[in-house]
């Protein structure tokens, strides 16, 4: 039973990571691509961390898996916002208004 749970969680985690990479590849604009970084830092790492904990319990590997999943969970929204903000400032100046949005390439 434990083996099945670990296998399912690993397939879910790795599958989400692969689909997120595919999303980044096939979307056309930088803003659209940014959306696909979120599943890769939420569902994916949490599923993999859960698989590691079920297999190893709270060993060294388990603690590391929790730390990494937690770090990705906290940092990604900040990086996504900062990247989008930097893109907006680079393209449109200090703040992107709706008029600027209409002129977006």
């Amino acid at each position: 039973m434990r083996t099945i749970a670990v296998a399912v969680l690993l397939m879910l985690g790795v599958g989400v990571e692969l689909l997120a990479c595919l999303g980044v590849m096939v979307m056309t604009s930088a803003y659209d691509r940014l959306h696909f970084t979120a599943p890769a830092t939420t569902i994916g790492p949490l599923a993999i961390a859960a698989a590691v904990i079920i297999e190893e319990s709270l060993s060294t590997a388990g603690v590391k898996a929790i730390l990494i999943a937690g770090l990705l969970l906290v940092v990604n929204p900040v990086l996504t916002h900062a990247t989008a903000r930097a893109g907006g400032i680079r393209t449109h100046g200090d703040f992107m208004t709706l008029e600027d949005k209409e002129a977006r390439p």
Partner: peptide, 12 residues
């Protein structure tokens, strides 16, 4: 919190 959800992120 908004930028954590995959379909939406805050630009500013």
């Amino acid at each position: 919190a908004i930028s954590l959800t995959p379909n939406t992120f805050v630009v500013g």
